[in-house]
Simulated scan of single mutants.
Amino acid sequence: MDFSHWLLLFCTLLAFYNLGIIWFGQIVVYPLFAKVGAEEYITYHTFYSSQIPLPVILPGFAHFLLPIALIFYRPEPVSLGLALANAACGLLSLVVTVALEIPRHNRLEKGGKQEDVIRELIRYNWPRTFSIMGSAFLTLMMLMQAFSPTI
Rank of each mutant, 00 (worst) to 15 (best):
F3T: 09
S4P: 08
W6P: 00
L7M: 12
L8M: 08
L8S: 12
L9I: 12
L9K: 04
L9H: 07
L9C: 09
F10S: 10
C11K: 05
C11I: 07
T12K: 08
L14A: 06
L14M: 02
A15Q: 13
A15F: 08
N18C: 14
L19Y: 13
I21C: 14
I22V: 15
I22P: 10
W23Q: 03
W23A: 12
W23D: 07
W23F: 14
W23K: 11
F24N: 14
G25M: 15
Q26V: 13
V28S: 15
V28A: 14
V29G: 02
Y30Q: 13
Y30N: 04
Y30K: 01
P31T: 08
F33G: 08
A34T: 05
A34R: 04
A34E: 12
V36W: 05
G37L: 01
E40M: 08
Y41E: 02
I42P: 00
I42F: 03
T43H: 11
H45Q: 10
H45K: 06
T46Y: 06
Y48K: 07
Y48M: 00
Y48N: 06
S49P: 00
S50Y: 00
S50C: 01
S50Q: 10
Q51C: 14
I52N: 02
P53W: 05
P53K: 07
L54M: 09
L54Q: 09
L54W: 15
P55Q: 13
I57P: 03
I57M: 11
I57D: 10
I57Q: 07
L58Y: 14
G60H: 07
F61H: 04
A62K: 14
H63D: 11
F64T: 08
F64C: 14
F64S: 07
L66H: 10
P67N: 01
I68L: 15
I68Q: 08
A69R: 09
L70D: 00
Y73G: 06
R74G: 02
P75G: 14
E76P: 02
V78H: 01
G81F: 01
L82P: 06
A83K: 07
A85W: 07
N86R: 07
A87P: 13
C89Y: 03
C89M: 11
C89T: 09
L92A: 12
L94N: 02
L94F: 15
V95R: 01
V96F: 12
T97K: 04
A99P: 03
L100F: 12
L100T: 09
P103A: 11
R104C: 01
R104G: 00
R107T: 10
R107S: 13
L108W: 04
L108K: 04
E109I: 05
G111S: 05
G112V: 01
K113F: 08
D116E: 15
D116Y: 05
D116P: 00
V117G: 04
L121S: 07
I122L: 05
I122C: 11
I122T: 05
Y124D: 10
W126H: 04
P127N: 06
P127R: 04
R128K: 08
R128I: 15
R128E: 13
T129N: 08
T129R: 07
S131H: 00
M133P: 08
G134C: 10
A136L: 01
F137C: 09
F137Y: 03
F137E: 03
L138D: 05
T139S: 13
T139I: 00
T139Y: 09
L140E: 11
L140T: 15
M141L: 15
L143R: 02
L143E: 08
A146Q: 01
A146H: 01
F147C: 03
F147T: 10
S148Y: 02
S148H: 05
I151K: 02
